[in-house]
Simulated assay, not measured.
Amino acid sequence: MIRRLGRIEGQVRGLRAMVEADRHCLDEIQQIRAMTAALREVGLLIIDQHVNEGLRLAARGQDREAVMADLLRVLRAAMAEAG
């Protein structure tokens, strides 16, 4: 995940350079779309880790209702960002 975030930082720097150089707007939009896709993938990795941890806690006998409520809260937040 850290490596992915480093690539995204590079993409942001690249976009800034494109804007400063007054590159064609389609090139800039393509860079933004690539960054958006990369951020979405990082978000999915974070959700994956959270779901796996929640399932692990539920399997160990933690309050399953609380674990499920937390997982749903995270998923709702992620879906609200996507919408």
Rank of each mutant, 00 (worst) to 15 (best):
I46D: 03
L55Y: 10
M35W: 01
A21F: 11
V19Y: 05
R76H: 15
Q62H: 12
L55T: 10
G6Q: 12
L5A: 03
R7N: 15
G43N: 00
E65Y: 10
A59I: 12
V67W: 10
Q62Y: 08
E9L: 01
R3A: 15
A59P: 12
N52G: 10
R40N: 14
V51D: 02
L26P: 02
E9V: 01
I29F: 07
L71S: 06
A34S: 04
G10F: 01
I29M: 10
D22G: 09
H24V: 14
A21Q: 10
E41S: 13
R7E: 14
M79F: 04
A17Y: 02
A59R: 12
M79G: 03
L26W: 02
R73K: 09
R4E: 14
I47D: 04
E53I: 08
V67C: 10
E53A: 13
M1K: 05
G10T: 00
M18V: 00
R13K: 06
G14K: 02
R23E: 14
A58Q: 12
L57H: 08
L75M: 15
E81A: 09
L45N: 13
V51T: 04
I47L: 15
A34D: 08
A82V: 06
A69Q: 07
Q31K: 02
R76T: 05
Q49C: 07
G83C: 09
M18N: 00
R40D: 15
Q62V: 11
D48M: 07
E9G: 03
A37R: 08
V12P: 00
R40V: 03
A34F: 01
D70H: 12
R76D: 15
L57T: 15
L39Y: 03
A34T: 04
M1G: 13
G43E: 01
R64W: 11
V12Y: 00
A77I: 06
A17T: 04
G14C: 01
L71R: 05
G43Q: 01
V42P: 13
E81H: 06
H50A: 08
R7K: 05
I8Q: 02
Q30T: 09
R76P: 11
M1Q: 08
L57V: 07
G83R: 15
H50P: 07
G54V: 07
A77S: 09
R23D: 14
R13C: 00
V19P: 04
L26T: 11
A78G: 04
L55C: 12
R60V: 06
M35A: 10
A58V: 09
M18S: 06
L39M: 14
G61E: 09
A80S: 15
Q31E: 03
G10P: 00
M68H: 08
R33W: 03
T36I: 03
H24K: 05
R64L: 10
A58P: 09
I47V: 14
I2H: 04
D48E: 14
R7P: 02
M35F: 00
L26D: 06
A69F: 04
R60W: 09
E41F: 04
A80G: 05
L44Y: 10
L26I: 02
Q62K: 13
V74P: 06
A66C: 08
L75G: 11
D48N: 06
A59D: 15
D27L: 05
G54S: 07
